[in-house]
């Protein structure tokens, strides 16, 4: 048996404090703007064609008037043992040595098998060519590739920002540290519910938070070892 890839590289992870999340969806908007995510339109969106790399799931507990709403931002969990990866016949999705669940658009032939094997339903398929209404078409992020029809896409943990942060740290001749990299969702979170960083560095904020007594991972029982940790009082 082969050994796991032993890497000195940073291991990216996220912690989301559900007790802080207000469900404002600023992260969703920020993600759309940052990652050139297509606009589906009202009808197609209702038919399941909308693309949201991050979404805020709403769950209601109890009956009116004694009702509680829970919010849970869900994006690709970047599982260490991701079910989506081995089913891809062409290595379009694979595991990077930074623990990211990578998606190579150019390799993808569009079997959609990965999406079917994702228990978190966070993979999105480009069924048609993307169209942006004016003036959104003029605000595309040049650092992110636009995905055309026939390929799968999903949250990348803002890989373009990760690269930029790593380059900066390298230029300054130091290890990566908290604050070097912040994905668009983390940056825009008004409640500061989201934290991003290198979990391999025991002094980092994510490493500290992920050991919290409130920590759990989504559908942990599946053994996918997600890199996203949720904090919740668990009431």
């Amino acid at each position: 048996m082969e050994e796991k890839v032993e890497s000195k590289k940073p291991q990216w992870a996220m912690v989301i404090d559900l007790d802080r999340c207000t469900g404002c969806e600023a992260c969703v908007v920020a993600c759309h703007a940052e990652n050139n995510i297509r606009i589906a339109g009202e009808g197609p969106a209702a038919g399941g064609r909308s693309v949201n790399w991050i979404r805020v799931e709403r769950y209601y507990e109890g009956e009116y008037p004694d009702i509680r709403v829970k919010f849970m931002p869900v994006m690709c969990q970047h599982c260490e043992e991701a079910p989506c990866e081995p089913v891809c016949p062409v290595y379009a999705t694979y595991h990077t040595d930074e623990g990211l669940n990578g998606q190579v658009y150019n390799r993808c032939v569009g079997t959609r098998y990965c999406a079917n094997n994702c228990p978190y339903t966070v993979r999105f398929f480009n069924f048609l060519d993307p169209v942006w209404p004016e003036p959104l078409s003029k605000s595309l992020n040049p650092e992110v590739s636009v995905r055309y029809r026939g390929v799968m896409e999903k949250c990348t943990f803002c890989i373009q920002r990760i690269r930029k942060g790593e380059d900066k740290a390298k230029d300054e001749g130091r290890e990566i540290r908290d604050g070097d990299v912040n994905p668009a969702c983390v940056q825009s979170c008004t409640a500061r519910a989201m934290t991003f960083g290198n979990i391999a560095d025991p002094t980092s904020e994510v490493a500290r938070l992920s050991k919290s007594g409130r920590a759990s991972r989504l559908m942990e029982e599946l053994g996918t070892k997600p890199r996203v940790t949720y904090l919740s009082r668990g009431d």
Binding site: C88, P89, V90, Y91, R107, C108, V109, F125, F127
Partner: peptide, 25 residues
């Protein structure tokens, strides 16, 4: 397939992508 014209990428042959198919799939 989303891109049906690329179906032959599943075949194992030496190619310009430098990739072989994923036999685990």
């Amino acid at each position: 397939l989303g891109r049906p014209y690329l179906f032959y990428w599943l075949a194992p042959y030496p190619n310009s992508r430098g990739l072989w198919p994923n036999y685990r799939s």
